[in-house]
Nucleic acid binder design. Structure first.
Length: 450
RNA sequence: GUGGGUAUAGCGUAGUUGGUUAACGCGUCAGUUUGUGGCACUGAAGACCGUCGGUUCGAAUCCGACUAUCCACCCCA
């Protein structure tokens, strides 16, 4: 197989055999967002590079070394979106939506691009489901947003995903905290790992979640952000905790939870699993009260989260979650020979017009081979068309599950097939009911005996 | 960007201390008589053993480089 071109590193092909898994997640996630009052927004795949530099932050890893940036003919520089928030907020501002009533709730399902080294749960093109809520400064909004994320996780029936929350304060109290942190770590400067020595200058909060053992020990006794929050930020965080309690959502406060994008203020949160390798953050988000203003919009508080679809799928597969059934063929038409193909095509066209999924032989195969194929693609019914049938105008349709054959009038195939199809569904329901009745009866008997 | 693991038919694997026709399962295709699938059986197609170079009489097997891929660091979804 020399010379074939393969997919770019860190990208994925989703084949038809897997597509039902994606559709399951997409549908559940979108439905749940709609239930919470969020509405879909669609934005471009690439944006002006400056948008991400200004929002995500020019000191962040994402902007510094992970962006796919192209310079088009002329002088403009564009970047494939590394995340969804910046574009969504840009769209809201640009289309004058900030003049509409608050709160506003948007969701999107899109692919993002980051030039990273791939590993389990980390791709260069990955899919993100995101939600943004604009306008409310209240902790109730934070709680409502987190409740949506939790409800999505519940609806997907994934387990062992834990919620961690923290407040990183407003720029004012965070500045004070940075000072205190610097002071603390200065005295241990020599003991810190190399990257953390740099962090000490630029972003001391990052030292807190350094993985090096020595740094972890030092971080244990470091000052905690929560002790440095100003009154407003403290009240906000208390309000959030209270609201989550009212909603019955379990969470842990993790004072060392820091996020890598610059635009966050106050609330930050992550849903984390330990079941899919090192990249355990399934959903991450927080409040970004200054971002809209930074992007040139009329100041408004806002918050949001992003959820990694691939990571969700990894968990669901690991936990053997249920997925929607893949769509299958309703009817396979098997012409006996070439002379009967025309009739097969005619019949297929009529039924397809009714929305029935119909296939017929395109390989010139024997009847037996066609039956095998029909079975393989999961056809619910098979109709055999030979010379006899074409002449008489009557053909038999076989129910592949039961083996039962029914004669139908080809003149009237629409009605005939619909009836057959509905009957099969009803019979199936009947079977389920019998199974259920038996189960209940047996259980009763069992209870009686014991 | 830094580490470590792996690389054999479409997929999953075997391949013994280097020895000549590289094996098995799944899948694909065709058959097991005459117009009906799932099971079973038979057979066929399909691999220059990731690439290049080296050691050797001889390499899928040993060595080196490269490439790809996986995992971890970093960072994040």
């Amino acid at each position: 197989m020399a010379g074939i071109i393969q997919r770019p590193k860190g990208t994925m092909d989703v084949l038809p055999s897997e597509i039902n898994k994606w559709k399951t997640v997409e549908e559940i996630v979108e439905r749940q967002a709609e239930v919470f009052g969020f509405r879909e927004i669609r934005i471009p795949t690439f944006e002006d590079t400056g948008l991400f530099v200004r929002s995500v932050g020019d000191t962040t890893d994402v902007v510094q070394k992970e962006m796919y940036t192209v310079t088009a003919t002329g002088d403009s520089s564009f970047t494939l979106r590394p995340e969804g928030t910046a574009g969504a907020i840009r769209a809201v501002i640009e289309n004058g939506l900030l003049n509409e009533a608050f709160p506003q709730k948007y969701y999107y399902l899109l692919s993002c691009f980051r030039h990273e080294k791939p590993q389990a749960g980390r791709l260069r093109e990955f899919h993100q489901f995101g939600c943004e809520m604009i306008g409310s400064p209240s902790p109730a909004a934070d709680a409502d947003l987190i409740a949506l994320a939790q409800s999505i996780i519940d609806s997907l029936e994934i387990k062992n995903v834990k919620l961690y929350i923290n407040s990183i304060g407003c720029p004012e109290c965070r500045a004070k905290y940075h000072e205190a942190l610097k002071k603390y770590f200065e005295q241990y400067r020599d003991k810190l790992c190399d990257t953390c020595k740099e962090r000490l200058e630029k972003n001391p909060m990052r030292i807190l979640d350094c993985k090096s053992d020595e740094d972890k020990k030092l971080a244990k006794n470091a000052p905690v952000i929560l002790d440095y929050l100003c009154d407003d930020c403290r009240a906000h965080f208390d309000g959030l905790r209270r609201a989550l309690g009212v909603m019955g959502i379990n969470f842990k406060v993790d004072p060392r939870l820091v996020r890598g994008l610059d635009y966050y203020t106050r609330t930050v949160f992550e849903f984390i699993t330990t079941e899919i390798g090192a990249q355990g953050t399934v959903c991450g988000g927080g409040r970004y009260d200054r971002l809209i203003e930074q992007l040139g919009g009329k100041p408004a508080p806002a918050l949001g989260f992003g959820m990694g679809i691939e990571r969700i799928l990894l968990i669901m597969q690991k936990q053997n979650c249920n997925f929607f059934e893949p769509t299958t063929c309703d009817l396979y038409i098997a012409p006996m020979n070439e002379n009967c193909l025309d009739e097969a095509v005619r019949t297929a066209n009529i039924l397809r017009g009714d929305g029935v999924s119909v296939e017929y032989d395109l390989m010139g195969r024997s009847l037996k081979a066609q039956m095998k194929y029909a079975d393989k693609i999961g056809a619910a019914f098979v109709m055999v068309l030979g010379e006899e049938e074409v002449e008489s105008g009557f053909a038999k349709i076989k129910n592949m599950a039961t083996g039962k054959q029914t004669e139908v009038d080809l003149e009237n195939i629409s009605e005939e097939f619909e009836e057959l199809f509905c009957n099969a569904i009803m019979e199936k329901d009947e079977d389920f009911r019998k199974i259920e009745e038996n189960f209940l009866k047996n259980r009763k008997n069992g209870e009686g005996r014991s």
